[in-house]
Design a protein around this nucleic acid. Structure first.
Length: 286
DNA sequence: GCGCGTGTTGATTA
DNA sequence: ATAATCAACACGCG
């Protein structure tokens, strides 16, 4: 459940369910998933209380008593859920946090891409390097137009992969990148330094609004996932382009297309999101 | 059965 | 600097 709105939805659900709970012991079934080594990881967590759960970009930060933080990234398919002690465990459940109240917090991840790392609280940005390099959160307060103008102005990359670069702006993934570009009527192949201040302003607002709207809808559920909390995301009903190739554009009726950009499936409307002539020139030139 | 694609990111090569 | 490729891994789909 990966992009920012989904991770935020997980954070809220987990806060409701396990904030204040205490770890009895931890079972690591797939040792590669955790840092430090599983024996240290499990020993460190015994008797810790989950004081709160924070989020930064797509990372979850479990704050434990004794100034210990677990940095957790769900990657492609990681999920948390809370079950009564002893209920059947999926073969894709890789870490089980046994709580002292006869419940279990479980981490399940079909593809095993997710990772969790224990660090002293306050040192996460140095010990979890990618966390330290994250760009600003996509909110009105933290993602300023001045910052947008600055970073977009000095890069020659095309906009789709630029939006996926977590060091520029934190939290956008493949679905919402396509959505905000459609909302902004910007072609995914547009070099970012050809975007006008006016376009950047609109893009910024759409990013901010879209994140808030998707969080309000409890995120997007694709495939057949239900979330951990019985509150499957609803936002897939509000997607305009992602997964809708071949369907008519809601604005103009033109058939939506899907192409590959920087190895990622990319959906857009060829009529509403034309490649600007100067962008074409830049592409051919390079 | 095979090849391809999948909401991510990090390392390695030109 | 940037872009492509591959890697981690498992599964659904045509």
């Amino acid at each position: 459940m990966p992009e920012l709105p989904e991770v935020e939805t997980v954070r809220r659900g987990l806060t409701r369910l396990v904030q204040g709970a205490t770890i009895a012991h931890v079972e690591v079934r797939y040792p590669k998933m955790v840092t430090p080594d599983a024996d240290v990881f499990t020993a460190e967590l015994i008797s810790r209380k989950i004081e709160r759960i924070d989020r930064r970009g797509k990372y979850l930060l479990f704050r434990f008593s004794g100034d210990l933080t677990m940095v957790s990234h769900l990657r492609m398919e990681g999920k948390y859920d809370v079950q009564p002690e002893g209920s059947p465990v999926s073969k894709h459940t890789h870490v089980i946090f046994h709580l002292t109240d006869n419940r279990e917090l479980r981490y399940t991840d079909t593809r095993k891409f997710g990772r969790m790392q224990l660090v002293p609280t306050g040192e996460e940005t140095t010990l979890a390097p990618s966390l330290g390099k994250l760009g600003p959160e996509p909110t009105a307060e933290t993602l300023t137009l001045a910052y947008m103008v600055k970073i977009f102005g000095k890069s020659h990359k095309v906009v789709k992969p630029f939006l996926l670069d977590q060091t520029r702006i934190a939290g956008l993934g493949n679905i919402y990148a396509d959505e905000v570009l459609w909302l902004s009527k910007i072609n995914p192949l547009t070099p970012v330094d050809t975007l006008t201040p006016s376009q950047l302003s609109e893009l910024r607002q759409n990013i901010i609004d879209e994140m808030a709207l998707a969080i309000g809808g409890h995120g997007t559920t694709v495939h057949s996932f239900s979330t951990a909390f019985g509150e499957a995301g609803q936002f897939q009903n509000q997607l305009h382009v992602y997964g809708r190739e071949g369907e008519p554009c809601e604005r103009c009726g033109t058939e939506l297309v899907k192409i590959k950009v920087a190895q990622r499936g990319t959906h857009f409307c060829p009529h509403c999101q034309p490649l600007p002539p100067e962008a074409k020139a830049a592409l051919i030139h390079d």
